[in-house]
Amino acid sequence: MSRSETALEAAQAGADVAMDHYRSALTVETKESKTDYVSEGDVEAQREVVEVIRSAYPDATIVGEEEDELKAVPEDGNAWVVDPIDGTTNFVHEIPLWTTSIGLVRDGELAAGVSVAPALDHVFYADESTVRRDDESVSTSDTTDLEAFSVAPILRYGPDREEAFGSLLTSLLVEFGDIRRLGCAQLTLAFVAAGSLDAAVSALPNPAAWDTVAGAHMIERAGGTVTDVHGDPWEPGCEGIVATNGAAHDEVLDRIGPALEAY
């Protein structure tokens, strides 16, 4: 079984564990803010993911949001980047917009990504040759008219960046057709890859790899473009993320540029 196939198996196994906890009595704690949740579902789902990966690759390097796994992607070698429940706030509030996501990185380059959204009955998957939602091949949208663009702000910003985030939201409302905030970065990026959204934007410095790697890979393989906020090629650890259908990427960067100066 290839690494990408193992990632798919592990994400599905982790999603099954998370789904067992969904809409049930949960033990929930908070991290850096009152809305930055972690539940027993997060922890147990990650343990399941890690067990599946290490049963196939005992020496696997794992970057994971929970517990004691690595928190940054190594520059060399293969790494598995795991988010057991992306969108935990949605998960805790019984909103079905959450995923179990795994991204593969090889010597710093994106290699595969999978996001399983069990409450929506969707599986998004991309390796080096294919991108699909469930059993259907997908690609990014071909929208070029920014007044028709659906753009999604992604990732948590925190109280110290509320004013800057507000500036970005205002810019998105004014400059594009409509905005959607789903509360799950990986699902949002998967929707860009599948053509349901035209772009996703975050100016958050150094966004976590587990929030971005799987979806960034899907978008690039689906025909889109992913850069940092300056338009440079995106990689884990860079400044922000701007992910578009690729048809009007430079125009999107130009439109949001003034708002990004607030960061």
Rank of each mutant, 00 (worst) to 15 (best):
T6A: 11
A7W: 01
L8A: 06
E9P: 00
A10E: 00
A11H: 01
A15S: 03
A18F: 00
L26H: 09
L26F: 13
E29L: 10
T30C: 08
T30A: 12
K34W: 08
E40T: 06
R47L: 15
E48V: 13
I53F: 03
R54A: 09
A56N: 07
Y57H: 14
V63K: 02
L70K: 13
L70G: 03
I85D: 11
D86E: 04
H93M: 03
T100C: 03
I102L: 01
R106T: 10
F124T: 02
T130R: 15
V131F: 05
R133C: 12
D134Q: 12
S141E: 08
D145Y: 09
A152P: 04
P153W: 06
P153S: 09
L155A: 09
A164W: 08
L169W: 06
T170Y: 13
D178F: 04
R180Q: 13
R180G: 11
C184N: 14
C184G: 12
S196W: 04
S196N: 14
D198I: 13
S202P: 10
A203N: 10
A209W: 11
D211T: 14
T212R: 02
A214I: 00
G215V: 07
A216I: 08
T225M: 10
T227Q: 07
G231P: 02
C238R: 06
C238E: 08
I241H: 07
T244R: 02
A247N: 10
A247W: 00
E251Y: 06
A259T: 11
